[in-house]
């Protein structure tokens, strides 16, 4: 059995309705894929420092940005996430010495693929965030959320007229 194909969409619709009722603006749903050693620790620091950032991001912790298969990102878009961010250790700081260097090439090509397929590149964000950069993590989520909010809800990987049912 495959996972939930329209959960993200359903949730977004429901939240849009709720926010409209409460007079709030629409909240995007963002997938954050974070490296355990730097970026996830950075997010943790943001939390323990009680920094405020939008509750738009759903975080998945991975051992290293080198673990991020570009298909994770493609699948997230196929499932309807409004934005995807991948965060890893700064070059030279990888816990496994060079995982993030491999990630760097894959992500760079993934950006080209998204462009070639005509997906809005602004919906994908890649950044280096260290364990001490809690502040930076909070800012990043803030900025990326603003950016996605400007773009509006993601309409899906295929153009509307080709959508199945």
């Amino acid at each position: 059995m495959s996972e939930d194909s329209t959960l993200v969409q359903e949730r977004t619709e429901q939240e849009t309705k709720e926010s409209a009722e409460q007079g709030r603006t629409w909240q995007p749903i963002i997938l954050g894929i974070l490296c355990n050693w730097c970026s996830y620790a950075g997010a943790d620091l943001a939390g323990s420092s009680r920094l405020q950032y939008p509750e738009t991001v759903r975080i998945i912790r991975v051992p290293c940005s080198g673990r991020v298969d570009p298909a994770f990102v493609l699948k997230a878009f196929r499932k309807g996430f409004d934005g995807v961010m991948v965060l890893g250790c700064h070059p030279g700081d990888c816990h496994y010495a060079k995982g993030n260097y491999y990630a760097r090439r894959r992500i760079a090509l993934l950006q080209d693929l998204l462009k070639a397929l005509g997906l809005p590149e602004e919906r994908f964000h890649f950044e280096w965030v260290s364990a001490s950069e809690g502040n930076r993590f909070a800012e990043l989520v803030q900025e990326f959320t603003e950016q996605i909010r400007r773009l509006g809800p993601f309409k899906g990987v295929v153009a509307v007229e080709n959508k199945s049912s």
Binding site: M1, L7, E10
Partner: peptide, 13 residues
């Protein structure tokens, strides 16, 4: 005339 098919279950919400 080939008629073989597969049946799959998928969870949607």
């Amino acid at each position: 005339s080939c008629s073989c098919f597969d049946i799959q279950d998928e969870v949607c919400g």
